[in-house]
Design a protein around this nucleic acid. Structure first.
Length: 311
DNA sequence: CCACAGGACGGCT
DNA sequence: AGCCGTCCTGTG
């Protein structure tokens, strides 16, 4: 089925549509997407790649993507996206949730590598790499440096609250993430209310460099991995680790292996059995996992963190 | 009061 | 190229 080719089958109140192999049913509360495999909200939203999805008591996740706020549930092979219409699925959610990729095939390849990967994949079988907005991912991971997840979420939420547009869902207020121009027009002093500390000046200066065109994020997609890394590392607050996170979690490059202190310890414990430099780890994974390095990193990291390996 | 956290930066050798 | 002190804030 080609992009945008919808087959509408109306049955009474419901409208069932097909989009790229998924069956979509639209209701007043939102949409249901049938035929979704390799998907587990906990694995996806709590594997460290995103900071704007909040879990509720019923196990649903509510978050803001671009100019939409939605709530996601999953059961069996049915994905429920509340506060979304069928058009949003084609425009936004299909791409954001990376539903065009066969994670079954990726897992099959990685499982063949070794018993470590097999175990990690069994544990995080429902992980998917979200294709997040490049600009928001950039700022998110500048904030992530020397920081823990709860605080990262708090700072990003504060930035959205101070600079973003209001969105409402079930009587609750949410905010979009502001565009680069909005932060470029601000100041370090103003941004300071978000409690980002010394990262605030990195954020403002990066926003200014992007807004003035000194660095062009659009250009990244046409570059090779090494060139793309070097390009975003020109931005203040972006070092090697943050650069790899930005490229991977925005869906720009998948042959990167973000190596923080956790991943380093995990690789040392599971693969090397001795202290190993980040450089040597990168050399190894590039050769060993190749184009699937980014996916392998995500399965390994989630497995290790949840099982407290490398502590 | 102090150590430390899912890094980057700048100054040093 | 590698090593190390410092950086803002929150938590223990």
């Amino acid at each position: 089925m080609e992009n945008g080719e919808w087959r509408i089958e109306r049955n009474g109140e419901r409208g069932a549509l097909n989009y790229k192999g998924y069956k979509i049913t639209e209701e007043s509360s939102g949409i249901f997407v049938e035929g979704v495999r390799d998907f587990h909200p906990v694995h996806i939203f709590e594997c460290g790649q995103c900071f704007r999805w909040i879990r509720d008591e019923e196990g649903g996740y509510t978050g803001v993507v671009r100019d939409k706020v939605a709530r996601i549930n999953f059961e069996g092979d049915i994905l429920q996206i509340q506060n979304a219409i069928a058009g949003d699925f084609e425009e936004l959610w299909f791409d954001y949730l990376d539903l065009g990729r066969d994670y079954g095939a990726i897992k099959e390849q990685l499982i063949q590598k070794d018993a470590i990967m097999e175990k990690a994949i069994e544990f995080g079988h429902g992980i998917r790499l979200l294709r997040q907005d490049l600009w928001e991912t950039l700022i998110s991971f500048i904030i992530s440096s020397n920081n823990r997840i709860p605080r990262i979420m708090k700072i990003i939420g504060a930035i959205a609250g101070a600079y973003g547009e209001e969105l409402w869902l079930e009587g609750r207020r949410y905010h979009t993430f502001p565009p680069a121009g909005r932060l470029a027009a601000s100041s370090v002093e103003e941004l300071d209310v978000c409690r980002g500390g010394y990262r605030c000046k990195y954020i403002i200066n990066s926003a200014k460099m992007l807004h003035s065109g000194v660095v062009d994020l659009e250009r990244l997609k046409g570059l090779g991995t090494e060139e793309a890394r070097e390009e975003i590392m020109r931005l203040p607050g972006v070092g090697p680790k943050v650069a790899d996170c930005i490229l991977l979690y925005s869906g720009t490059r998948y042959d990167v292996f973000p190596t923080d202190v956790w991943v380093k310890r995990v690789m040392e414990e599971l693969y090397f059995k001795k202290e190993t430099s980040i450089k040597d780890i990168q050399r190894f994974v590039r050769e060993y996992f190749g184009d699937l390095a980014g996916f392998a990193q995500q399965y390994l990291f989630y497995y290790a963190r949840e099982n407290r390996i490398g502590v």
